[in-house]
Amino acid sequence: MRTRYVLLAVGVAVLVLLPAYGGNYLVRFGTFLCMYAALALGWNVIGGVTGYPSFATAAFFGAGAYAGALLQVAHTPMPLAWAGAVVFVAAASAVVGIMILRLRGHYFAVGSIALVEVARLVASSWSDLTGGGMGLNVPILPGGPEYAGMVFLYSMFAVAAAAFAAGLWIEHGKLGFALRCIQQNEDAADMVGVNTTACKIAAFVLSAVFAGATGAVYASWTAYLDPSDAFSILLTLKVPVMAMLGGAGTVLGPIVGVVVFQAMEELLWSNFLEMHHAILGLMIVGLIFFLPGGLLSLGAHRRRAPARATSREVPAE
């Protein structure tokens, strides 16, 4: 376990020092890494720990992006616009959560993916506010591309770090224990005194808040938004796949998944331009069939096996 955290610390150091030695391409790649890490860690709260297969990531990413962008267009300073976007997404996700969290399993998955489509349609139809399909221009951060690259790398990193801290807090805290009970057996959780509705909404809001924050930073970073970019089905599918690739329900899993997925996508994309989506698709199928616990479970199996053997050796009374 300790080596994992050492590796994580090295990875963080490499990321933080990127602007000093890496070019624009690497800084951009690093920013995407942080963005997906924040999204995957956020998704993990509801999708991994609580076991509710949410495909609503892009709905809250887009909502945060538009809220932040519109606030900036209305001359709100960038950090305040981001904060406003987070508050908006938290409130919106609480309302949506109350409705959608009555569904379980497949029904919840379908309901959550519908949120993305509904949000996209709203954004593209409400042209007066969002510019519709024409898109929305966000004020560009002054100071030149290199300075902007650094600001957005560190901003995305901060969101990812907050998501990681939230993940640790959940894993060790009372809420996380309640969420794991819900994931294991929701009715039994209710019976032992877990307020399942409140816990699920908390998990859903927490997960949405990180998607919203990421979206707001993303909008300022790209300085342009359109509905199909903000509410992208591809994004909403990619994030759970990344978390599951590393290991859903664990704190480090989503980060491992994001790094491996992004590295592979970058390699595949540059080498197999025509085929890279097909290859990614095959990987996802292979992952579900052969490694449902994710990459981290490879190490866990080796560690757990002897522990189980010793627990059997204890004589029964």
Partner: peptide
């Protein structure tokens, strides 16, 4: 109605 993948101790601690 146990929490199947949790340990016995965790199951009871939840209560």
């Amino acid at each position: 109605q146990p929490f199947p993948q949790m340990t016995v101790l965790e199951n009871v601690a939840a209560g």
